[in-house]
């Protein structure tokens, strides 16, 4: 019994430790982003752009495919139900609203967590086990400023862009089914798709993706910086990073949706 309590206590303690480390990393990153110029070290543009190009080119195709086929599936499944009610045309607005509000941002974020979050952890983790992080510190180069900040800033701008691409390709998937299979007039489909889509649906989705971007980048960097134990450790850290990001993305999705739901913004 005592043993059980002990192990539960130890577990809680280690979680508190992790949370503390994570928050301190986030704090440092924000400090360097907003107050770095005070120390003569503002955020440099070039590394941020490099990261954005790297992140964008690496994931645009996979984002397109995932959301496109989700749009297709969504259209096919809702068509069956809606045709019973004689409202096949509403497939258009159903697809566009659910993609823009929910599926586009979340699916894009999950794809990016698997693609970019893992890459971030693997890169920083292998630098950690090869003494490279320590070398940066010895050269008086702050690793958070040098490595973490460009990645956080780049993903913060890149994920909404990718989300827009995801939204559009998801709606395109719906359009293909609606026009090609259900025989809805192309013009009518587009009109219905955008008629019920409010600006709020779009910015709710995009604001979510900003939160997801911070989660993915910071979790990836945190796991990378805390990698121990050689190549095996890098693999383990990468897995943990992706799993943690997935869970946090879903939780954050719920929280943000809740905020919008209850506050009627």
């Amino acid at each position: 019994m005592l043993k059980l309590l002990e192990s539960v206590g130890a577990n809680i303690l280690s979680w508190v430790n992790i949370l503390q480390g994570f928050l301190s990393l986030a704090g440092q990153a924000f400090y360097w982003i907003f107050f770095g110029f005070k120390r003569g070290k503002p955020v440099k543009r070039q590394p941020v752009f490099e990261q954005m190009v790297f992140m964008g080119t690496r994931s645009v195709v996979i984002v397109f495919f995932v959301t496109f086929f989700t749009g297709v599936v969504l259209a096919m499944q809702s068509a069956q139900q809606l045709s019973k009610l004689g409202g096949t045309i509403y497939v258009a607005s159903l697809v566009s609203i659910s993609i823009c509000r929910e599926l586009g941002p979340v699916l894009t974020a999950l794809v990016i967590a698997g693609r970019i979050g893992a890459a971030i952890t693997a890169e920083i983790g292998s630098m950690q086990v090869n003494e490279q992080i320590e070398a940066l510190e010895t050269m008086a180069i702050n690793p958070v400023r040098f490595l973490v900040v460009p990645k956080v800033v780049a993903l913060f701008f890149m994920l909404p862009c990718l989300t827009v691409i995801g939204d559009l390709s998801g709606m395109f998937g719906g359009y293909i089914i609606g026009v090609g299979n259900l025989g809805i007039n192309s013009y009518l489909y587009l009109q219905t798709a955008f008629e019920y889509l409010t600006l709020k649906d779009v910015y709710t989705g995009l604001s979510k993706s900003l939160v997801f971007a911070l989660i993915i980048a910071l979790v990836g960097c945190y796991q990378g910086l805390n990698t121990r134990g050689g190549a095996v450790g890098v693999g383990r850290a990468t897995t943990i990073s992706v799993v943690t990001s997935f869970i946090l993305i879903i939780v954050a999705d719920c929280v943000v949706t809740g905020i919008y739901y209850f506050s009627n913004i």
Binding site: E123, M127, N130, E131, Q132, E134, A135, L136, T138, M139, A140, I141, F146
Partner: peptide, 29 residues
């Protein structure tokens, strides 16, 4: 820290930078 240099057991070069960028990193930063 800027007043001394350190040579690491595993060299610890940043492997996404070439030789020139590695050597000039402290200068540029």
């Amino acid at each position: 820290k800027r007043r001394f240099g350190m040579c690491f057991q595993s060299s610890a070069l940043l492997d996404y930078l070439n030789v020139e960028e590695n050597v000039s990193l402290p200068l540029c930063e």
